[in-house]
Amino acid sequence: MDSVIEVKGLRKTYGGQAVVDGIDLQVRRGECFGLLGPNGAGKSTTLRMLMGTTPPDSGEIGILGFNVRADARRMRERVGVVPQKDNLDPDFTVAENLSVYASYFGLRGNDAKQRLRELLSFVALEEKANANVATLSGGMQRRLTLARALVNSPDLLVLDEPSTGLDPQARHVIWQRMRSLKSEGKTLVLTTHYMDEAERLCDRMAIMDHGKILVVGSPRELIETLIEPHVLEVSGTGVEEWVARVAKPESRRVELVGETAFCYCKDDQTLKATAPENPRLQFLSRRANLEDVFLKLTGRDLRD
């Protein structure tokens, strides 16, 4: 069996509005797959349906060969979940959080104990084994949540915004652990709002909006096929005048956001050359990235 997740025609409506509007999805064994989209795009609802906690209105969900609608329990025995908001048990210590969670899987005894020691060392929390969860920093709590998701040695790990709210040090630790899990052969599915995170970690990703999947591909494919290679960001007072006079005729696509113009082009040499004549404007030339693709597909309007 090649694909770990196989979703067909998945739909969910709330109050007549389609939150997930007929999506198809395939995640291959051993890859890291990203699900991206603005708030309200339907990512979390999709994940909940995958885990069998939200019943879909229609569609098929197969995970690790299990039909989720009929057999969620057996599927969950093989899957680990890192939820968006930590839901560690505040009454228990670090080690107790792991052992109690392991007991939900029916795991106990010496093998389980050995496994918990390995997990604590995997997330560098051995020293904190007997600490109360409330005394841990945000990054430590996140690492403990990751360890907890691994108590059953899952084949598939689902992470809902794994690094939101963490400082750069903590994010890098989480990323490094995710990479090492991938190299162990585990399949990872994550949602994130951070394009750099998606670009670093994901082999393939889907960008969702309004309940639909807009595109699927590797970060590199998406950048190469969906957007111009160069972006020139020009900002400062008088940028509108510059856009009308210089940029519009030259660049295929210009987006004006406040006092910054984003000029997407194959080659930004001609535009850049106008910098000396416009000393009050700042010019920043860079290569297009995933965030540009994301914004092009989903727009710049605020979502709440």
Partner: peptide
């Protein structure tokens, strides 16, 4: 959210 955590387990 202890129940949510339990619902992610079997």
């Amino acid at each position: 959210r202890t129940w949510d955590a339990m619902l992610a387990a079997p």
